[in-house]
């Protein structure tokens, strides 16, 4: 083999070997264990923080609400659906038994018309099936703009929960 071809071949060999070495060094340890990915990515995804507790947890402290709710139309509604994620609250609220809860642990108290409107605002797509087979009722729909917006005697704005108990509507 002529000298210059030898040089060329060795230059290529060096590049290829370097590449293979780099490939070995840079491939993450768990790569390829389960498939063409880092197997460690699964536990990494599983380790993300939770925010929602689930209503089974709420019952631990707020049993009276649960029994209240069980009698009404909102029986199957999860607490956190209206009150927001409560895992932090469930974990740490205990420590503030006699004191005021810090804001970060307070749950959302949905008392605006728009909060109820999320489910109950009248909408053509909403009237479809009977939800409560025992009482044979559909989800209740109102026009939140027209349904008693103000108290006729005091002329003050009225919110839904002035008249309806959200836990037992």
């Amino acid at each position: 083999m002529p000298q210059h071809i030898k040089r060329l071949v060795s230059a290529f060999a060096v590049v290829i070997i370097l590449f293979l070495v780099m490939q070995q060094v840079l491939t993450p340890a768990s790569f390829g264990k389960l498939g063409h990915y880092r197997a460690d990515a699964i536990p990494e995804n599983e380790m993300k923080t939770l925010h929602y507790a689930g209503s089974a947890v709420c019952t631990n402290c707020h049993e009276e609400m649960q029994t209240d709710k069980a009698l009404g139309f909102h029986a199957q509604l999860q607490c956190e659906a209206c009150h927001g994620p409560g895992l932090k609250h469930a974990l740490y609220a205990d420590k503030f038994k006699d004191k005021e809860l810090p804001d970060s642990l307070k749950l959302h108290k949905p008392d605006q018309r728009k909060d109820c409107a999320l489910c109950h605002e009248i909408n053509a797509a909403r009237i479809k099936i009977v939800f409560d087979t025992i009482n044979n009722t559909m989800i209740h729909q109102v026009n939140t703009l027209k349904h008693n917006p103000v108290n006729k005697r005091t002329n003050e704005k009225v919110i839904c929960i002035d008249c309806h108990n959200p836990h037992q509507p």
């Binding site: 002529p2 000298q3 210059h4």
Partner: peptide
């Protein structure tokens, strides 16, 4: 860039051309 090669004999050049 020539990889410190020095061979410019007609034979080497012909090989370069062919390759």
């Amino acid at each position: 860039f020539s990889l410190w090669t020095t061979d410019i004999s007609p034979k080497a050049v012909a090989l370069d051309n062919k390759l």
